[in-house]
Computed example of a mutant assay.
Amino acid sequence: MQPQRIGVVGAGYVGLTTAACLAELGHDVVCADTDTAKVEALASGEIGLHEPGLRELVVKNAHRLQFVTDTAQAMSDVDFTFVCVPTHVVESVVTAAPPDCRLVLKSTVPAGTAAKYPGVVSNPEFLREGHAVEDFLNPQRIVVGAQDERLAREVAALYETTGAPVVVTDNTTAEVVKYASNCFLALKLSYVNTLAELCERLGADIDGVTEGMRLDDRIGGSCLEPGPGWGGSCLPKDTRALLATAAEAGVEFPTLEGALTTNGHQPRRVVDRVRAETGALRGKKIGLLGLTFKAGTNDLRESPALKIAELLGQEGARLTAYDPCVTGDLDGIEVRTSAVEAARDADVLVVLTEWPEFAELDWPELAGHTATPVILDTRGVVPEDKVTEAGFRLVRTGR
């Protein structure tokens, strides 16, 4: 396909990634956002998101990537306009579009939304925070839904240089694919977290269990790492949304309800293990390593680390923390500029985010600064041999 003129409405996480990556694929893109300060920053190559490779793409493709504050510019004189705004404002954007505007919904919307608007194409995103650029440019699949198959295939052709398999279907089916995918991941994560708890009770090792599971092609290797619970902007929202959709349709979905219940249990389980190491938490100093909901992002939305911190604070613990992408104190948490400072005089260190750099910390130095050299690793990221050699006692999820 020849390069197309593309409009993108919304310069948030999905919108900015979409705009920059479509420009990288050779299309001319105008990206609109009502936040003037954000647009000015983007025009100068500065982005507020921590997303590997994204700033480089914005700078590299500046000659075919324009940022504006007038949404009409992203809907006029373009071949397609991608809508990448929060769910609650999608309808206002769609209804404000000129009649000849060919809209493509990237936003995650309730099933049946696009079908209400003739000519609108559904093209859900499958971007992992921390891997968004990689996922966009090397997608596992492209899903496009529309009432007009010809129009759907024109949208699919925008991605043809990626070589990804294409699923062309109707709008509602495409919308359900997004929810079904995310909710399946939520189910899988909740399942492995419960397995980890079972392993602790039985004296088994979750790492060995999941190693044996991964070799089964029917199961696959992804989302089998136990942790303190799942969070972020997508999985919690999408599981609740699919449950609501099922309820409206008169369909019971106990497996998905169970995944949410299991996930809600995880922060309390971590706090119980911290208490088992320190005794009563009141007055104890807890050093937290990691605050974002996952590594590779500065996103704190529905982070299990923050829920755990809240519960620890409610029991009177004093909290210090270090995260490579978080600066400035948070409610009840003194955020430090290094792991050493977070560990100073701590009664226990708790690893809550799987930042790779946590595997390379100077463990003897950290041990020398703690009041009690104990680490609770909820992510399985720290090297057992190095931390124990440094004098720490290591407690890990699933053991």
Rank of each mutant, 00 (worst) to 15 (best):
P3T: 04
Q4G: 03
A11G: 10
G12Q: 02
A20T: 01
G26E: 12
G26C: 13
H27Y: 03
H27W: 08
V30H: 00
C31V: 00
D33W: 01
D35Y: 05
T36C: 13
A37S: 15
K38D: 01
A41E: 13
A43F: 02
S44G: 08
G45N: 04
L49W: 06
G53M: 00
L54F: 09
N61E: 13
T69G: 11
T69Q: 15
T71V: 13
F82S: 00
V83S: 06
V83K: 00
P86Q: 02
V90W: 02
A96P: 04
A96G: 07
D100P: 15
D100E: 15
L103W: 06
T113V: 11
A114E: 04
A114S: 07
K116Y: 12
P118A: 12
V120T: 14
F126I: 01
F126Q: 00
G130Q: 04
H131V: 01
E134W: 07
F136L: 00
Q140H: 15
R141L: 07
V143L: 06
V144P: 01
G145K: 05
D148T: 10
E149C: 07
E149P: 15
L151I: 08
L158H: 05
L158G: 03
A164R: 03
A164T: 05
P165Y: 07
T169Y: 01
T169N: 12
D170P: 07
D170W: 14
D170G: 04
N171F: 11
T172F: 06
T173Y: 06
A174F: 02
E175K: 14
E175R: 08
Y179S: 12
A180K: 02
S181V: 04
A186L: 04
L187Y: 13
L187C: 13
L189S: 08
S190Y: 01
Y191F: 11
V192F: 10
E197G: 05
E200I: 13
T210L: 05
R214G: 13
L215G: 00
D216V: 14
G220V: 12
S222A: 05
W230S: 13
G232D: 08
S233R: 06
S233D: 06
S233H: 13
K237Y: 09
T239Y: 11
T245C: 09
A246L: 08
A249N: 05
E252Y: 03
F253P: 08
T255F: 06
A259E: 02
T261E: 05
T262G: 14
H265F: 06
D272K: 06
A280I: 13
R282T: 10
G287W: 12
L291Q: 09
N298A: 10
E302V: 11
A305N: 04
I308F: 09
A317L: 07
P324D: 12
L330S: 03
D331K: 12
G332D: 03
T337C: 13
A339P: 03
V340G: 04
D345T: 09
A346E: 02
T353W: 04
F358A: 03
W363C: 11
W363A: 08
E365V: 10
L366F: 11
T370P: 01
A371K: 05
T372H: 07
T378V: 11
T378F: 08
G380L: 13
V381W: 01
K386P: 02
K386M: 10
F392V: 04
V395L: 09
R396G: 02
T397N: 07
T397L: 11
